[in-house]
Nucleic acid binder design. Structure first.
Lengths: 153, 153
DNA sequence: CTATTAGACTAGCAACTCGATAGGGTATAT
DNA sequence: ATATACCCTATCGAGTTGCTAGTCTAATAG
């Protein structure tokens, strides 16, 4: 399950991606526009900064901005940074592997075989989708629903 | 993340599937063979019984057994029964849909679009895999590793 | 019929996580 | 200097997880 932390973080990053290149945005701005508790968002953005996704500028006229183009930041990266590994089990994680002690033979563990498939499918989607991709898809959906409502009138 | 509850439950069910048709198996047997805390397993199996996956017999010669053939019990069903919905967000769940309050327009929410893809991929895998399928795949893996080790000698 | 077996059920608990808040500290621009 | 806005640590209530204890009840062997 995606935590609120990851959800808030993604929301803020999508906002920053939409206004990429137009200077820093204030935490309080983002918090207000998206209805996120300001202090909580502060922690999340700080976290993302430490992971290298964001940069910040202090003082008057400061705020946060993406440290890379929206095309080069993947949803998978962000979720891993805020919620930890994507894998449903530590023993199928690529980025945070941990063998399970009760398993005698990992390669022939049925649960592992199935869960590996799940983690691979999830990673394929999330690591293959950048912030820019998400914005594109939203764009397209907006157009589609507008057309649909135009016909409806 | 898969909870221990679901993991233990799946482990026990796979054991019951392997010996399907050979009479009931004791909780204590399963607990010992798989290294699961007995009392905890008791709760889990009781839960699965209430969901109709298992049946039980009390008294001497009693124990648990599957109420359907292993081909007809899916991994997805079990995980949902023990851990709740597969979806990473309530607003993309088929079996436990819940709209998110902060979302103005659900159809054009970027996070939702991506997470729906993840939930669909996960559900396709887990609902398409039965206990029998898991046992088959383990079988095949065991054969493969045996062949490999034979060459290694 | 009654002793034994084995599941059914309720309650509770320690540890941890989650979502959020408080209250300062520090760097920067005017 | 001083207002601005990010940086950092601590804390907290509520809920969840993994597990244990103890008792009750149904079924069967003898």
């Amino acid at each position: 399950m995606l935590s609120k932390k990851a959800k808030y973080g993604l929301t803020a990053l999508l906002l920053l991606a939409k206004e990429y290149g137009e200077g820093p945005i204030l935490i309080s701005d983002m918090a207000q526009r998206e209805g996120i508790p300001k202090k909580f968002l502060e922690l999340i953005l700080l976290d993302l900064k430490k992971q290298g996704v964001l940069q910040s500028k202090k003082g008057r006229g400061g705020g946060y901005f993406l440290s890379k183009a929206p095309e080069r930041i993947t949803v998978g990266h962000i979720i891993r940074a805020l919620d930890g590994p994507l894998a449903p089990l530590p023993c199928v994680s690529q980025t945070a592997y941990l063998k399970c002690e009760e398993c005698k033979d990992e390669t022939t563990c049925g649960i592992r075989i199935v869960m590996k498939e799940v983690r691979d499918a999830t990673a394929r989607i999330l690591d293959g989708t950048s912030l820019a991709d998400v914005l594109d898809r939203v764009e397209r959906m907006v157009k589609l629903t507008k057309e649909a409502s135009a016909y409806a009138i």
